[in-house]
Amino acid sequence: MSARQPRFNRDNLIDTTPLPDHIPKVQELGASSAPLLSASFFIGARCKAYNDDYMMCKNEANGRGEFDCMKEGRKVTRCAASVIKDLNEHCLDEFRAHWQCLDNQNQQLWNCRSAERKLNKCVFDKLKLEKTIPDTPKGETPVHLRVKNTFAKN
């Protein structure tokens, strides 16, 4: 048996070296999946321009998007963070109720419509962000606004 210890474990794999100083720092989102899912359509509503810009930059960067699109990436992160910050400031109770419901309901949006309606109303009143699902067929009520559902409990 060799005397060498296996080195691929989680203690050793952590590389905590920060980014060099010439790259501007940005606070990461730090939200887990349920709050992100709950806020996703508002992030999409406010940050569409930044998101599209970033994805286009990466698409056209010819494999160097990781380096060349850091500026756009910082904008995307700042914009998404601003949405979550606003949600926390203005609609904290509704936001919390919704993402906790998502956590309890296997992150199925259709099981949390009552909490979502309250959140959407609060966000629309205070932040002027509206949830829209693109490409919904014309003449149909979007699925998150329907009163009668086959699958949803409420």
Binding site: L29, F41, G44, E72, G73, V76
Partner: peptide, 13 residues
């Protein structure tokens, strides 16, 4: 679409 809206933020991070 909820995932599509989140992808840029996750990718950037």
């Amino acid at each position: 679409w909820s995932r599509i809206h989140l992808i840029p933020a996750l990718t950037a991070e």
